[in-house]
Design a protein around this nucleic acid. Sequence first.
DNA 1: TAAATACTCATACTTTAGTATAAAATCACA
DNA 2: TGTGATTTTATACTAAAGTATGAGTATTTA
Lengths: 159, 159
Amino acid sequence: MMISKNIFLKNKTNIIYGISLAFLLIFLKWLELRFIIFNHSYEIYIGLIAIFFTAFGIWLALKLSKPKVETVIVEKEVYIGKPENFIQNTFLISELELSKRELEVLELLAKGYSNQEIAAQLFVSLSTVKAHNQNLFEKLEVKRRIQAVEKAKRLKLIA
Amino acid sequence: MMISKNIFLKNKTNIIYGISLAFLLIFLKWLELRFIIFNHSYEIYIGLIAIFFTAFGIWLALKLSKPKVETVIVEKEVYIGKPENFIQNTFLISELELSKRELEVLELLAKGYSNQEIAAQLFVSLSTVKAHNQNLFEKLEVKRRIQAVEKAKRLKLIA
DNA sequence: TAAATACTCATACTTTAGTATAAAATCACA
DNA sequence: TGTGATTTTATACTAAAGTATGAGTATTTA
């Protein structure tokens, strides 16, 4: 692909150079006719000046022109180390009709606390925690606390 | 950013084209007046040719010069789906002296299976699973299976 | 105000999990 | 061939988890 482009560019260059040259000759001829100048050395002189200043112009342009910046956006995969991008799926939480208290219990379950410990932390009885558990299991359609935690994490209900 | 640059480039081209055209017309008109009415002033004539061809050269150069490509690498954060970049911490596994069987049990624990179910899957007795569990809890320094699973996942012992 | 909902608690029971201890069976390896 | 590590199994027990049922309380909402 690069090669074909180069060839095209070279062809383009040749064409434009040819046209330029033709234009130059026509221009000179036109000048000749226009001003009736028959002095050959003068034509050559003018031609040389034209060529020289054309070259000068080219040099000047290349020297002064700002580089045409072609921004190439390369998507570089940056692997993010920490799963800090936890976004709680509040939609699903309301969809599953999980209450605040149930979510609290769920989070403590995920931390590996026993029912007793959870009851102590929430200042409620063991019975209450068990009740919450049962509701959770039913709503999450699981049978055990581990499954509840696993599913809750998978569904982004808890971190 | 890209759009403004494009506009600038287009403007640049237009400006150069406009100037070139205007300059050419003025030049021709001026030449006509200058040389037909006042007849030959060769220094000026040559100077004008020099200017014209300098401009022509500049135009040619700008037209033909390949864009100098400046590659800008933009690091774009691409969040990779997380379960793909799990790298098991085999070092820690050997460090904790976890046996193959214990790891198997650990993985099944993580999936929320009960001891009975694990025993069935591994074709061993419930006693065996319990024994593995105990060894796991001791090696992982935890008290319950949930804690074991939580810690194992955190330490990248299991996916 | 009545109904719905969430939260709470209790009791009784069954199941599962975890602890402690002991001991075969298997296997790699020196 | 024996030695150590792993794996396996068993028994007996305690602790925790889970089930089922009923009911009181508080808050919100129609």
